[in-house]
Amino acid sequence: MNALAARRRHPAAIAVLLMIGLFLTGAVYAAVAPEPADATSLALPAQSVEEGKALFRANCASCHGLNAQGRPTGNGNQIAGPPLAGVGAAAVDFQVGTGRMPMTQPGVQASRSESVKFSDEEIAAMGAYIASLAPGPAVPDAEAVDPTKGDPARGGQIFRVNCAMCHNFAGSGGALTRGKYAPSLRDVTGKHVYEAMVTGPQSMPVFNNANITPEDKRNVIAFLTTIDQEKAPGGMTLGSLGPVTEGLFAWVFGLGILVGCAVWLGSKAA
């Protein structure tokens, strides 16, 4: 408690408090609003939009343009940042909330990062700004991504048909062309999985609600949560990458240990 008291004047304290407040509001809202919030409205006051606009101009406009209209690099067809009108708050929440944006350096693909640069409130504000430009997918509410309400078996079937070819059977990720890749889905929050499906970030196709219904999206999240929690019945998973790592393990450790035993067996006792 002392540590908590000592930090109550910390600049982040307000943000934390706001976060808790927002979370509670969200939770109450989720409890009273059963509809999956795929509508394009966002219950945020107007000053959020203004604040988001300011944040956007300061942090994102260098690539995405001052009014989020996108910007070319002047190098052929390549773009510095795509136009963002219509991508929705869900895209902002996914890209910024997983640490992909802002990109530290240009690359084939923005990668997930542990260090998220903005507070949830700031992300929500930027999302409100982007959503105000044109309608787009909103951030899903807590119920829409609640794994306990989904059916993991059905989610598994949806996952294997629609997701496993890129993200691998256990969501460990996989390679795409020319250095791009489908990232690992292990320990990704249900909200971000949902947002990725509705917004189709980077190479990923869009899975709109006509393609995979909101219920099935929740089932997929339930499946991913189940395999996350199940850990490994058989022991170390070796990255859940299939026979390659198993073969490597057999060669390095299996053979190594057995050859070690053989050397001991063939050596003369002291």
């Binding site: 070819m165 795409l176 062309t177 791009k180 489908a182 980077q202 190479s203 869009v206």
Partner: peptide
């Protein structure tokens, strides 16, 4: 099955 929606490559 691996469709990249930006490059339109199928892998």
């Amino acid at each position: 099955g691996l469709y990249e929606q930006q490059t339109h490559h199928l892998l």
